[in-house]
């Protein structure tokens, strides 16, 4: 009897949970992406720095 009056709102529920997982997923993915980009930047910069250090040390000492 009581169950009959309960409205069917499972659509909203599914939407809610799908939304939560999507947002969390996007966030984690963005963090991963930013991390990867920064790592690449760091590597490039480090190699650049190493090159410069080599150049600076071989012809004349800075």
């Amino acid at each position: 009897m009581l169950l009959e009056t309960t409205p069917d709102t499972s659509g909203y529920m599914i939407a809610g949970y799908v939304f939560s997982f999507v947002v969390m997923g996007i966030y984690v993915f963005s963090m991963y992406l930013r991390n990867a980009n920064l790592k690449r930047d760091a590597e490039t910069l480090e190699s650049l720095q190493a090159e410069e250090a080599k150049k600076a040390s071989s012809p004349k000492k800075k």
Binding site: L2, T6, D8, S10, Y12, M13, G16, Y17
Partner: peptide
């Protein structure tokens, strides 16, 4: 939240959203 908890009588399934909320 989705399986274990009983369905709320007045609001129905959507009440399950509340655990994550």
């Amino acid at each position: 939240a989705l399986v274990f908890a009983p369905t709320e009588a007045v609001m129905g399934q959507v009440q399950r959203v509340f655990y994550f909320h």
